[in-house]
């Protein structure tokens, strides 16, 4: 492992936006965005060069916790109401999955279950675990943790699935008194949860996994 040099050790910085490799002319000063005088702009694209994402731990924790708080009403509150002549039915995320399953669409039920329940839970658990282990400077299972982060980043936005389903059904099922679908607050909380967890995974800097004990924070 020691044969693989890291940019930090070589005094280099890769531009986050355009990928240009720059020499860290500020020497060993921390280009972490916390010092005002440290700011150095990428000569090619003009973005601020940072050794690590700004305040990665604090931002990721804040966004993740906010996302988790909103995830509770997203699951408890109904996400849509289906109303017809003789009955009114409020659906939560999980009742939507059950409905698909009992109507015989087992495959779609599994997809919706994965996108709406498994993916958000996986994001909370994985990012929480990545944050704790990186903050402790743990060297446990680093390649696996790196892969887990890439997975979380890749699958994150698929959770929007249920939000789009509710939106489409609301727009289409409009048969006056015969049959109607209306969005309920749960879907708003769920949409916000997805956005917040996406922002959380973007704020996390995967390089922190490899940084070890004696670096930032």
């Amino acid at each position: 492992m020691s044969a693989l040099p890291r940019a930090v050790d070589l005094g280099l910085i890769g531009c986050r936006m355009c990928g240009l490799v720059c020499r860290n002319v500020a020497g060993n000063a921390k280009l972490d965005g916390d010092g005002v005088g440290d700011a150095m702009a990428c000569p090619r694209c003009g973005s601020t060069l940072r050794r690590r994402k700004t305040n990665s731990y604090a931002r990721t924790w804040a966004l993740l916790i906010a996302g988790f708080i909103l995830y509770i009403p997203a699951n408890v509150l109904p996400i849509m109401r289906t109303a017809s002549l003789n009955d009114v039915d409020d659906n939560t995320i999980i009742s939507g999955v059950v409905e698909l399953w009992t109507n015989g669409s087992v495959d779609l039920a599994i997809i919706v279950f994965l996108a709406s329940i498994v993916v958000p839970m996986l994001k909370f658990l994985s990012l929480g675990m990545l944050l704790v282990s990186s903050q402790r400077g743990s060297d446990w299972a680093r390649p696996q943790r790196a892969r887990l982060y890439r997975l979380v980043e890749f699958i994150g936005y698929w959770s929007m699935l249920d939000v789009f389903v509710v939106a489409l059904l609301t727009a289409l099922v409009r048969f006056n008194v015969l049959s109607r679908v209306e969005p309920l607050p749960g879907v708003i909380f769920f949409g916000l949860t997805v956005v917040l967890t996406m922002l959380a995974s973007m704020s996390f800097d995967p390089r922190l996994i490899w940084d070890g004990r004696n670096t930032d924070d």
Partner: peptide, 11 residues
Amino acid sequence: ALLICEHCDTV
């Protein structure tokens, strides 16, 4: 001619 891994900072 250099490339830095965005995920772990290896050059």
